[in-house]
Each structure stands twice: as structure tokens, then as C-alpha cells.
């Protein structure tokens, strides 16, 4: 079991800086999700921890020991790849036992460990198959099994579920989380899927263009996003961001006051989550509904703020089929659900 510490970690490919200094302390047994859009450097960050990419600057500490110069095999980690990276010419049992065989473990012991892992992952009876003969979900489990049998201190997952269909993804998501807490192994998990991030993470790193926008628990990120990017990336549908003004301690949208603020007067970005607005005939937000999407449990209303071209989305509980094109609705918002951001830096105010 292990802790992982990242100290001002940087990565450049030539003159191209892809990771701009990331600091983080990961405690033993924590499940950390690195989430961000493609190209944000999240996989590179994971690969630096794995030792598959060199560290340009800064330090990776595993269990308090500097790991920058260590080979991947000496870091006591295991990794699950996006395409599973199974050895196509080996059986399931050989795939899972490869690392142990190299470590020089006796055959019976390997067989016992492989069998135990296979049982844990419900792979019994498949041990003699080749990867080609397995379904996507089974291959995923074999890749997990290969990671488990070596009993590493840290699990690294590089978008392990992105090749699976939606239903299987939900199931595997739960299984991975369950397995990780059962084994109590520290885990770093890369994904671009904010739902995976919200549901699996003990803490998450929201990454954008090589910068950690926010590090915190899913609820912290959801409730108090520290930047515009984090605010819009986490939560579905995405947060509405509106240009507003602060005047006389109030946040004004045009000439309507939406909520109070003690920030200095001037322009501000106002963030409102679609699910935090509620229909209210006296509410400050007037919306022209252009399209409604009934999802069953809730209904998404897409439209624009009345009299403007500013897009706005609201999410209402239950089914609301009554809205027709161009119909106007008014919404109110709880002042605690107003998120204010600096329009220059994007930081939370």
C-alpha cells in the first residue's frame, strides 16, 4: 500500500509544454480520478507516474521515495490500458501470470494466484482461452486480473472503460470501484467521462491544457468549482455561464438582480447550473423555450434568455411537455447556487 506525491510535475515534448506543474498528495488507498478533455495531458500525467514517460521537471514520489529515474517495473505499480494491451499469443492464465513468472515465482504459486484473481473477477473457466476469444468486458477483466495478481502498491487506469458499451461501462465502473476498495490499493484513474469521475473518485483532478484546474472531492468540485473550466466540465448538462455586472452589492443580469454579492463592482461571469433553477412566476430569469427534451426523471429545456441571443438550459424535475416553441418561462434561483467567476482569469470569486 502506498502514497503518491507529485511535486511541481512538468512535461515538455521539445519546446511544447504539455504539463505545467502539478502538485498533489495522494494518500494510501485513495481513488483519484484525473479527468479532462482529450489532449489536456491527463494520460501523459499518468504515464509519468507509470514511468512510461520521462519527467521533464519536478518529482514523482511513490511511498515517499523519488521514482523519477526508476524503471516502470521497479515502481511497484500496475497499469490497465485503454485497449487492454493483452498479450495476444498467450492464454488468459499466461497473460495474468506473466509478471509473476518474470519475478521468478514458482509455478504452483502463480497458478494459485491466477486462479484466485480469476475467481474474484468471475473469469473462472476462461483461463485457457486466448484474448481473441473473449468479449470486450472479459478482456477488460483479464487486464484487471493481470494488474491484481502482482499485488502492486498503486493501480493506474488509462481510460479502461472507453471501449465498452454504455451498459457494460456502468457495470464495470461499479466493479472497479468495489474491487479497489476491497483491495485497499491506491488508484489513479484517467477518464474523459465526468460521470465516471463523479461516481468513482475519492478526489478528482480536473485538468485542462496541462494545468490542474481543481483538485478536490467530487462534491467539492460540483458545489464550489474553483474555475470556469471546472464548473462547465463537471455536471451534466453543463453549467450556464452568463455575462453579468456587480453593482451595489447585487449581481445584475441586464437590469434584473439575480443574487447578492459582496464583491467589488464590475463585470463578472455568473454560473447557474441547469438543475438549480426552478420555475417561479416572480423569478428574475425570463427564458424563451425553444426545445424541450423529456428524459423521464427530468426534462431539459433549451432556449435563450428573453429578448437576447444568450443560450440558456434549465433542467426540471419530472416530465414537462407543456412547453411549446417560443413560450416564455420565468425561473428563480437560490442565492447559494450562484457561482461567480472573474471574467479575466476564470477563477472563482
Amino acid at each position: 500500500m502506498a502514497t503518491v506525491t507529485l511535486k511541481n510535475l512538468r512535461k515538455s515534448f521539445g519546446s511544447d509544454d504539455v504539463i505545467h506543474g502539478i502538485d498533489m498528495e495522494i494518500s494510501d488507498g485513495e481513488f483519484i480520478v484525473i479527468v479532462g478533455p482529450s489532449g489536456c495531458g491527463k494520460s501523459t500525467l499518468l504515464r509519468m507516474v507509470a514511468g512510461l514517460e520521462t519527467v521533464t521537471e519536478g518529482e514523482v514520489l511513490i511511498n515517499g521515495e523519488r521514482a523519477n529515474e526508476k524503471e516502470p517495473m521497479d515502481r511497484d505499480i500496475a497499469m490497465v490500458f485503454q485497449n487492454y494491451a493483452l498479450y495476444p499469443h498467450m492464454s488468459v492464465a499466461q497473460n495474468m501470470g506473466y509478471g509473476l513468472k518474470i519475478a521468478g515465482m514458482p509455478k504452483q504459486e502463480i497458478a494459485a494466484k491466477v486462479e484466485a484473481a480469476a475467481h474474484l473477477l468471475q473469469l473462472d473457466g476462461l483461463l485457457d482461452r486466448r484474448p481473441k476469444q473473449l468479449s470486450g468486458g472479459q478482456r477488460q477483466r483479464v487486464a484487471m486480473g493481470r494488474a491484481i495478481v502482482r499485488e502492486p502498491s498503486v493501480f493506474l487506469f488509462d481510460e479502461p472503460l472507453s471501449n465498452l458499451d454504455a451498459k457494460l461501462r456502468v457495470q464495470m465502473r461499479l466493479e472497479i470501484k468495489e474491487l479497489q476498495s476491497k483491495l485497499g490499493v491506491t488508484a489513479l484513474y484517467v477518464t474523459h467521462d465526468q460521470v465516471e469521475a463523479m461516481t468513482m473518485a475519492d478526489r478528482m483532478i480536473v485538468m485542462n491544457a496541462g494545468v490542474a484546474e481543481q483538485i478536490g472531492t467530487p462534491m467539492e468540485v460540483y458545489e464550489t468549482p474553483q474555475s470556469l473550466f471546472a464548473a462547465q466540465f463537471i455536471g451534466s448538462p453543463a453549467m450556464n455561464v452568463l455575462d453579468a455586472q456587480i453593482a451595489d452589492g447585487r449581481v445584475m443580469l441586464g437590469d434584473v438582480a439575480v443574487c447578492d454579492s459582496d464583491q467589488r463592482a464590475g463585470p463578472v461571469k455568473l454560473g447557474l447550473r441547469p438543475e438549480h433553477v426552478a420555475p417561479d412566476p416572480q423569478g428574475p430569469l425570463a427564458m424563451e423555450v425553444l426545445l424541450s427534451e423529456p428524459l423521464g426523471a427530468n426534462t431539459l429545456l433549451h432556449g435563450r434568455l428573453a429578448g437576447t441571443e444568450i443560450a440558456f438550459t434549465a433542467s426540471l424535475q419530472g416530465v414537462h411537455l407543456a412547453n411549446h416553441d417560443g413560450e416564455a418561462m420565468r425561473f428563480g434561483v437560490d442565492p447559494v447556487d450562484c457561482h461567480l467567476f472573474d471574467p479575466e482569469t476564470g477563477h472563482r470569486l
Binding site: G51, L52, P72, Y98, G99, R146
Partner: peptide, 28 residues
């Protein structure tokens, strides 16, 4: 595939071991 080689590297196989147990069979 690069990731297969990387998986073997993480599994503890050094260059020549990887070559003989992973790469060569895949070249067969």
C-alpha cells in the same frame, strides 16, 4: 502495439526478455 510492449515493461520484463517473450512471438 506499443501498449503491449509497455504492459510487458510494467510487468517487469526488460528489453531482451520483452523481445523474446512478446515481440518475437508476435512476429512469428
Amino acid at each position: 502495439p506499443r501498449s503491449v510492449i509497455e504492459a510487458a515493461a510494467i510487468d517487469g520484463a526488460r528489453f531482451w526478455r520483452r523481445f523474446f517473450t512478446i515481440v518475437l512471438p508476435l512476429l512469428s
